[in-house]
Simulated assay, not measured.
Amino acid sequence: MCRWLAYSGSPVSLNDLLYKPENSLVVQGKHAQLGAETTNGDGFGIGWYGSLPIPGMYHSIQPVWHDRNLHELSVQAKAGLVFAHIRAAIGSPVQETNCHPFRHGRWLWMHNGYLGDFLRVKRSLVLAVDPSLYPEIEGSTDSEIFFYLALTFGLEEDPPSAVARAVGFIEHIGRQHDVEQPVQMTVATTDGSTTWAFRYSSDQRSRSLFRSTDISTLRHQYPDNPVLHELCDDARLVVSEPLGSLRGAWHEVPESTCVVIHQGSAQLCPFSPTAPQVLVG
Rank of each mutant, 00 (worst) to 15 (best):
G105M: 12
G105L: 09
R106T: 15
R106M: 13
R106L: 11
W107Y: 13
W107N: 06
W107T: 09
W107M: 10
L108I: 13
L108V: 14
L108D: 11
M110I: 13
M110L: 15
M110A: 14
M110K: 09
H111D: 07
H111T: 11
N112G: 01
G113T: 09
G113Y: 03
G113C: 11
Y114E: 12
L115R: 04
L115Y: 07
L115P: 04
G116Y: 06
D117I: 05
D117G: 11
D117R: 11
D117W: 01
D117T: 01
D117F: 02
D117A: 14
F118E: 06
F118N: 00
F118S: 05
F118L: 04
L119M: 08
L119S: 10
L119Q: 07
R120W: 07
R120L: 08
R120H: 08
R120F: 05
V121E: 03
V121I: 12
V121G: 03
V121M: 09
K122Q: 15
K122H: 12
K122G: 05
K122E: 12
K122W: 05
K122S: 09
R123G: 11
S124E: 15
L125H: 06
L125Y: 08
L125M: 13
L125C: 12
V126Y: 01
V126R: 07
V126C: 04
V126F: 01
L127G: 04
L127N: 14
L127W: 11
L127T: 12
A128I: 12
A128F: 10
V129G: 11
P131C: 10
P131A: 08
P131V: 10
S132F: 10
S132E: 15
S132T: 15
L133K: 01
Y134L: 15
P135A: 14
E136I: 02
E136R: 12
E136M: 10
I137C: 12
I137Y: 06
I137S: 08
E138G: 10
E138Y: 12
E138L: 14
E138I: 09
G139M: 00
G139Y: 00
G139Q: 03
S140R: 09
T141M: 07
D142S: 13
D142Q: 12
D142T: 12
D142I: 07
S143R: 01
S143Y: 02
S143G: 10
E144T: 10
E144R: 07
E144Q: 13
I145S: 01
F146R: 06
F146V: 00
F146W: 10
F146L: 06
F146G: 06
F147V: 02
F147Y: 06
Y148N: 05
Y148M: 08
L149D: 04
L149A: 03
A150H: 01
L151R: 07
L151E: 06
T152F: 03
F153M: 05
F153L: 08
F153V: 00
G154P: 09
G154M: 01
G154C: 08
G154K: 05
G154N: 06
G154W: 05
L155S: 04
L155M: 07
L155P: 02
L155V: 02
E156R: 11
E156G: 02
E157H: 13
E157P: 00
E157M: 02
E157F: 11
D158E: 15
D158A: 15
D158F: 13
P159L: 09
S161K: 14
S161E: 14
S161N: 14
S161R: 15
